[in-house]
């Protein structure tokens, strides 16, 4: 089986996020950058399925040459090779989906694994758009993935319970948190990753024109909450909840 996994370079989920002075972007100077944690779960799942069924795991990132760091990290986990599609600046989800579509048409994977959302933009759109552009089925928010022949059975995290669906391959699958716990790269893995093939492509080579269907107009801090109060005991808490907050 051939797997194509996305690895987006994002700000560390533990980093303190600050907005720059003109509200056009966040400040990334001095902020640790990581693989989108949901994408990392996707790489791990592809590696496990490869260990079971054989095949190849290809990792893809879109961005500047900084994203090579995330591709090498994924290859240190065990991915076989990387593709960097070079592009500067913001992209809307449709552009991302069209880029991955072109790469998928070249690579012909059996399964595309993506995180359910990137933890920076939190849009949760690109994978589903990609599935539609390719005309493929999708299984989002995967909790468990099993491959049998030309089908994948996926247990999904749905509202109010777990849904099981069957999708014919090739398909797009997005990962939820509990799918697996990604492995740490071993030292030999890190050394080997440096020599694994990494191809670079441009939007022009792929024949994709970036769209501006969704334009970011500005960022602001969320409304701040006024400072709360520490109460000394349960009696005071109940009194405040009844008479001040009128919450009970």
């Amino acid at each position: 089986m051939k797997f194509l996994c996305t690895v987006k370079r994002v700000t560390d989920y533990e980093a303190k996020i600050r907005i720059n002075s003109d509200g056009s972007d966040i400040v990334t100077d001095g902020v640790n950058m990581i693989i989108n944690p949901f994408d990392e779960i996707g790489v791990e799942e592809a590696l496990r399925l490869k260990e079971k069924h054989g095949g190849e795991v290809v990792v893809l990132s879109i961005g500047t040459s900084d994203s090579v760091q995330q591709l090498r990290s994924a290859m240190a986990m065990g991915a076989d090779r990387g593709i960097l599609v070079k592009n500067e600046g913001d992209m809307d989800s449709a552009t991302v989906a069209k880029i991955i579509q072109k790469v998928a048409e070249d690579e012909q994977p059996d399964m595309i694994m993506m995180g359910k959302q990137a933890i920076d933009g939190d849009s949760n759109q690109a994978a589903q758009m990609l599935a539609e552009y390719l005309g493929w089925p999708q299984a989002t928010y995967a909790f468990k993935v099993e491959v049998e022949g030309t089908d994948a059975t996926v247990v999904r995290e749905a509202d109010g319970g777990m849904e099981t669906v069957k999708v014919g391959l090739p398909a797009v699958i997005t990962t939820d948190l509990r799918l697996n716990e990604p492995r740490y790269a071993s030292l030999p893995g890190i050394m080997k990753a440096k020599r694994k093939p990494l191809a670079e492509k441009t939007l022009q080579e792929l024949g994709v024109t970036a769209t501006t269907r969704v334009v970011m107009k500005g960022l602001e801090a969320p409304p701040s909450k006024s400072a709360g109060q520490i109460v000394p005991d349960v009696d005071t808490l109940i009194e405040k909840l009844r008479n001040e907050a009128k919450a009970i």
Binding site: Y13, I17, G121, S123, N124, V214, K217, E220
Partner: peptide, 28 residues
Amino acid sequence: GMASDISAVVSENTFKRPMWAGNVIGTV
């Protein structure tokens, strides 16, 4: 074009939405 998970309507084509785990509100 699609705006996900909006928290406010600014106009017929502009919306506010939480990003970066709600640490930032983006206007799209």
